[in-house]
Nucleic acid binder design. Structure first.
Lengths: 349, 349
DNA sequence: CTGTTAGCGCGTTCAA
DNA sequence: TTGAACGCGCTAACAG
């Protein structure tokens, strides 16, 4: 008996031999779409497979068939609840179709994103889903589009979850309208003096939300003083630091701080708390996304709901919908509704 | 010119032809570990590859080499911050090694877990990492072990993040000791009357933490009244409902509620708040895990820190450490330290 | 150092 | 229906 040296997995060949049938018959019994195999043989093959603990080699299947069952998912940061909720939706939808999900993390770097897309192409995934705000002006952007286009041209499906405008299937969140609706609701609740905590200027998501919010206020003749618009990283800590800067700069009579994401809003709330400022007693806060924890912080966070898991699900559906007719559908867009959620962090005043 | 019908990706063969060299030379230029290729040729191959937008086919490479660069990761729920933080650690460590991560979600079902492990074997991953509490007594457990053993026997590495005891590499969190230390700290802070919010009885993690907590109290002659131990799903909502049951059953003079996970603790805090019970004024709360949001809820949550991202990183390291010498190391165990973090949800009394 | 050739594990034609 | 043979894209001997 050989030593404990690792044996290699049983192959289809082994199964066929063990069952006393041909390779082709074994293949057909184990996978063959339309089964046209004698039931006796089938059973013998199945038994042999079980006996040998056979597991089909996906790589070999992919090479033989010329296609995989893989969905590649690119996120900025999987520990961020925004992305992890979307990922949950993607994975659930993919698994329902028998697809495997591979995941890569850009850590919010557009260069890294490009690298990863390049690498991911090697997997020959059926679908590539990119999530995370586009940031324009980056030098990688053109290269990224080229890479994605090359992928799409060779039969791959690309779906973006973010902003429209790129020539690929896109699941779009109407950040502008959502933020404008939020502004309107907050004005209706009696707020008049606002500050904003934003991400970096190039981030389209952040920019759209700020613009929507500002325009919503403008409808009521309200403007945010430029000193009251502070920027930081698009993370919890970024929100914390931006809010700290805001506090240091003097809050004047600001009544409500709008953060362009819940994650930033939660960071901002922590900063306010640490500065001894009561929320919402001294100052109210609102965010955007409606991540799970938005309802669990105290006070519960006013925000704009996005059906995050749905985003992921619909991205998969969009990708899989039109395997045919790729000509015109390439730039298909699904628009997802947002909904203002008023909670205790912005009581009527 | 052909229609817009999707062309197939350029192959190595195409590149070789375009560069005017042999297949082997092209292969060596593009991947060959120890480069022993004339620089002129190399450049020509690289240029051809760029021109044709060549991307190596990982599946074909895997078939030819007989091994992949894949890490398969199994989690209970990627939207749960506990798992998403671990996943972040796994992905970061894997990407640093040039490995691709595939992810599957069990949705806390042991049957589903078994199915997925079976399916994942088809990928021939180098490593399979399972996270999530073992739950004993499940009928799938034996089959799961068999499946994992088969995988390990054919050269795969298995690493569990959870409880030790299974014959695979394991990253172990000392739940028992951590909970006991927490109990001691809370008694030192002046608490005497406790309730516990737990997961289902079969979940080893939940059980270990409860046992540690109870034993820690016992050192001080304190016991938790059986009526004050409530159970629910190992989720935020499970914590909410368990706490609601606790409230309905009468809190008597309970001073602190210990939830066996932060996620449950946060659910419990919401239930308490909704019942008009002030935390920590009326009743204190403590959790376990130290997920990111633990510090952002109000009051900030007392808990036991686990270095979650590190868990993932160390699991990858453990898996990759001993490709040799598989005999004795198979059941290698890495023990991770925990640390009590007292926060505002359990002020001294 | 280069090119030729034989596989890797499997799907799928094509005859039988 | 079944089986033999070829090919998928690539790596790794082997020979030049």
């Amino acid at each position: 008996m050989a030593a404990s040296s690792s044996a290699s997995p049983a192959t289809l060949h082994d199964v066929a031999r063990d069952a006393g049938v041909s390779l082709a018959t074994a293949s057909r019994s184990l996978n063959g779409s339309t089964r046209k195999v004698n039931e006796d043989y089938r059973q013998r093959v199945l038994a042999a497979a079980a006996r040998l603990n056979y597991s089909p080699n996906f790589s070999a299947q992919a090479v033989a068939k010329g296609s995989t069952s893989t969905v590649a998912l690119l996120v900025s940061d999987i520990a961020d609840p925004y992305f992890s909720s979307i990922a949950a939706g993607v994975i659930r939808a993919a698994e329902a179709q028998g697809l495997i999900v591979t995941m890569a993390v850009t850590e919010r770097s557009t260069e890294r994103e490009l690298e990863l897309v390049r690498a991911l192409r090697g997997q020959r995934p059926r679908v590539m889903i990119l999530t995370g705000s586009r940031s324009d002006g980056s030098t990688s952007q053109a290269a990224l589009i080229a890479e994605l286009t090359a992928f799409a041209r060779t039969g791959g499906r690309v779906v973006l979850i973010s902003q429209e405008g790129l020539p690929f299937g896109t699941v779009v969140v109407d950040n502008y309208l959502g933020a404008r609706a939020l502004a309107n609701s907050l004005v209706a609740a009696g707020y008049r003096r606002f500050a904003a905590v934003c991400g970096e200027r190039a981030l389209v998501t952040s920019r759209d939300r700020l613009a929507g919010f500002a325009d919503g206020l403008a409808e009521h003749g309200i403007a945010i003083h430029p000193d009251h618009v502070v920027r930081g990283e698009f993370t919890r800590d970024g929100g914390f630091e931006a809010a700290a800067a805001l506090i240091a700069g003097g809050l004047d009579q600001v009544e409500l701080v709008f953060a362009v994401s819940d994650v930033m809003a939660i960071g901002a709330m922590s900063a306010l708390r640490e500065a001894g400022i009561d929320v919402p007693g001294d100052i109210a806060v609102a965010g955007f996304d409606d991540i799970d924890t938005a309802r669990d912080v105290t006070p519960a966070l006013t925000t704009v709901n996005i059906p995050l898991a749905d985003l992921g699900r619909r991205a998969v559906e969009l990708a899989l919908s039109d395997a045919t007719d790729v000509t015109d559908v390439t730039d298909q867009v699904i628009r997802v509704e947002t909904r203002v959620i008023l909670r205790a962090s912005s009581p009527p005043r």
